[in-house]
């Protein structure tokens, strides 16, 4: 009985955490589109002034070459952490782990689930 209760509690906690994380799409709109573009194509409003162009998240080939762990790392610790541009900032103080996971999920939708 105790085990069942614990499992139910953990399940509730997990569901709540995911709900709080919000959808990856919403988070992408808030934190990523200004550089990566409203369509995720790397052509955000800041891109024209950037020395290094933001990643095109709709590029299936490029994005498929990155693991989920790499994407998580670059969002949390910034481009410098994977020897890429400092123009990709570290978001680890703005986003929690659940939110970063939700963003990684959305990146996979952008790159690899085209109609």
């Amino acid at each position: 009985m105790k085990t069942l209760l614990l499992a139910a509690t953990l399940s509730l906690v997990s569901t709540t955490a995911l709900a709080e994380a919000g959808s990856g799409k919403q988070l992408y709109s808030i934190y990523c589109t200004q550089c990566h573009g409203v369509a995720g194509d790397g052509k955000g409003i800041n891109a024209a002034q950037m020395a290094v162009q933001p990643r095109d998240h709709t590029d299936t080939k490029e994005m498929s070459a990155r693991t989920d762990e790499e994407l998580f790392k670059v969002i949390e610790h910034g481009g410098k952490s994977i020897n890429k541009s400092v123009l990709m900032p570290p978001w680890g103080d703005n986003l929690n782990d659940d939110e970063i996971h939700a963003l990684v999920g959305h990146l996979r939708e952008l790159c690899c689930q085209k109609n």
Binding site: I30, T33, Q34, G37, V38, A39, D41, K43, A47
Partner: peptide
């Protein structure tokens, strides 16, 4: 809130 004022164009998103 910049995303609310960004729109796509032929040259990329513009304000």
């Amino acid at each position: 809130f910049p995303p609310a004022h960004a729109k796509p164009s032929a040259d990329g998103d513009v304000v």
